[in-house]
Structure formats: C-alpha cells, structure tokens
Simulated scan of single mutants.
Amino acid sequence: MLLRCVWRESRRSCFWFSYRGIRMAGIGGTEWTAEMEAEIRAIAEREMPEDMTAEDKKVVREARKKMKEIEKAKKKERKAAAAAAAVNLAESARVDDVEYLDASKEPEQIYGDYKLIQSRCAKTGSGRKFTKVEALDASQIGKQLWIRARLHNVRAVAKNAFLILRQKTSSAQAVLSPSDTIPREMIKWALKNITTESVIDVQGQIVESEVKSCTQNTIEIAVQRLYVVSKAAQPLPFLPDDAARPVHEEGVHVDRKTRLDARIVDLRVQAHQAIFRIQSGKDHPASKKDQNGALAGNCGDRRSSLIHKVAVLKRADCLSQVFLLG
C-alpha cells in the first residue's frame, strides 16, 4: 500500500503520507482514484508546526504541490468543456444558408446569411413587419422590433460589437453583447463576415441609451437575431463617411470624378440625400411658402423629378461641405 500512517507520540498527530505514493500518483500507469486525492488533500491541509521533522514537512509540501497540479488540471478540463459547449452552441445557432420564407416560421439559427428564396415566398411577402429607423425613439423602449437597414460601420469594444444601422438619412446603434443566448462566435462573425454597406435584418429590444454618433440618439438596439440579406462586395470604391467629409477636415477625401463614377454609393451619403429632399420639396408644386417666405412643403416627397436631381448634381463640388440634416 502506497500510503501509510506514522504515529508521532511526541506531537500526538497522525500524518497520512508516502513520498513515493505522492510522486507516483497518476504517473507511470498508477491509477489515480478519488480516495487517493482525498488522502493527499488531507495531508496538504495540515499545518506545519516548528517541531515537525524535515521528512514530514517534505511530504506536506509534496502533497500541496500535487493538489495544485490536480486543481490546475480540473480547471483546464472545465475550460475545455465550456469552450466545446460554446462552439456547439455557435454551430447550432448559425448556418451559412438561413432559409426564411414566412414570419410564422422563424429560422432556428439566430444569425447567418439568408439563402436565395427563388420566388418561393408568398406574393404578399413574408409577413414580417419592419420598423423604420427614423421611428425609433424613447416611446419604443422595451419593445422587440425588426429593423432592416444598411450596415454603416461596425467596431469592437472589449467583448462587444457596436453596429451602426443606416436607413436613408437616419441612423441608430445596435449592440451585440455575449450572454447565454448570444455566443461569442456570433460577435466574431458580425465583426469579420458582415461587410460595410451590406443590407441586414436585426431583431432586438429597444433600450435607453445616449448615442451621440447617431440621429436616433436616445436609444440603442440590444441585438437578439442578426441576418445578412444582401452582402456588399468589397472593397467599395469609397466609404460614405469619406465622401461626406468637409474639405477643411483632415482625413480621406473623395474627388468629384470618383464620386460620379460610383454614384450609387455617393447617393447613400446622408448629406447628399438631404440635399435632394430639400430640392425636391422646394421645387415641387405641392410646396408652398408661409407669410415669412419660409418653405412649408414636404421636403421628403419621393416624386422629385430627374430635372431637379440634375440641377443638384451641377453643385457636386460642394456636396461634401454640407452638414448632415435630419
């Protein structure tokens, strides 16, 4: 038997120890049992009085060292099990081709890329109701809503991911935070796989927050589901933020030719859209002026003519200097 009891009459204490037993436990085919661990733990928890012999002290130190190795191994096993569980959760939560045809049958996966519907959706649509970004305010706090918008940009802060959602001239912030329902792989996927200017579907709860970088600055969206509807090809000709940067500010600037060559991207700049809306409202017959001569029409009317848009294009050299409206 590897462990033996030595009775010390002078100290009236019993030490269960065996230097060979401690060193051989779990090594060279010796089977490590719970009973042996309990005996080693009992030795490790013993105090070492001054009159203890050097041999007994050595045994206690060896026992304590062995217990540290045991605890370290158990901690490593727990971490490995937690990591494996997280990977399994992430794999079960995401799929590259998420099928969505009907709002009554939400996908089992909480994030991923939509697959092509190939005209299999009902003529009336999927039935999912989306909320416009411009309608998000403090009155929506606590509600769970669906938003479809473009990803303006995404950034990582600590373990969280912050997504800026843009829709026309409005923007709002969405937040991905790790939790029991949001795996870390989902956050990594959002940071690495979703490209800027992609169209995404976001389901989340509206919470109160102060966000200075968005037009909807009193709320943010705690993301619960995230899907890519249409992924933007990379690299883009330029970023909307670069095209909107005034000439007197430091940073990347986009010249007129580049913007006109990629006009579809240039028209997504919030300031440029605001110019069109003002021009449309000013020149439309439905627009009227009040007694002070101020414009009182609908600046967001969609019936603006191509002539009005061309007139604004002639002033393309100063578009980047216009402040964001709305």
Rank of each mutant, 00 (worst) to 15 (best):
Q234H: 08
H272I: 11
R263Y: 11
S280Q: 09
S230R: 15
A232V: 01
V223E: 02
H272N: 15
P240I: 09
A232L: 00
S280H: 15
G281F: 03
S280R: 14
Q273G: 14
I278A: 11
P240Q: 03
V223P: 06
Q234T: 14
I275S: 05
A244T: 03
D261N: 12
A262I: 03
F276C: 03
A222H: 04
G251I: 04
E249L: 14
V269D: 04
V229D: 11
A286T: 13
P285Q: 11
I264M: 09
V269S: 01
A274M: 03
V228S: 06
A243L: 10
A274F: 05
K257P: 04
F276D: 12
D283S: 12
P246M: 12
A243M: 09
R268M: 08
R277Q: 15
Q224M: 06
A271P: 06
R259Q: 11
F276A: 05
E250N: 12
A233I: 07
V254L: 08
V265A: 00
S280L: 00
A232R: 15
R256N: 07
Q273H: 04
F276Y: 13
V254Q: 09
A271C: 04
L236H: 08
I275F: 08
V252C: 08
H284V: 01
K282Y: 14
R256F: 01
I278L: 13
Y227D: 02
L260H: 11
Q279A: 15
A274C: 03
E249D: 13
S280C: 10
P246N: 12
Q270V: 13
A262S: 12
Y227L: 03
A222Y: 01
Q224D: 03
L226D: 02
A244Y: 06
P240M: 02
A232Q: 15
E250P: 02
D242I: 03
V247S: 14
V229P: 00
A262D: 01
D255E: 10
L226A: 01
Y227E: 08
A274D: 06
D266I: 00
R277S: 05
I275M: 14
V254W: 11
R277A: 09
A222S: 13
I264H: 14
S230W: 02
I275W: 08
V252A: 08
R225Q: 06
Q279P: 00
H248W: 15
D266N: 07
A271Q: 15
V265M: 06
Q234P: 01
T258A: 13
V252E: 14
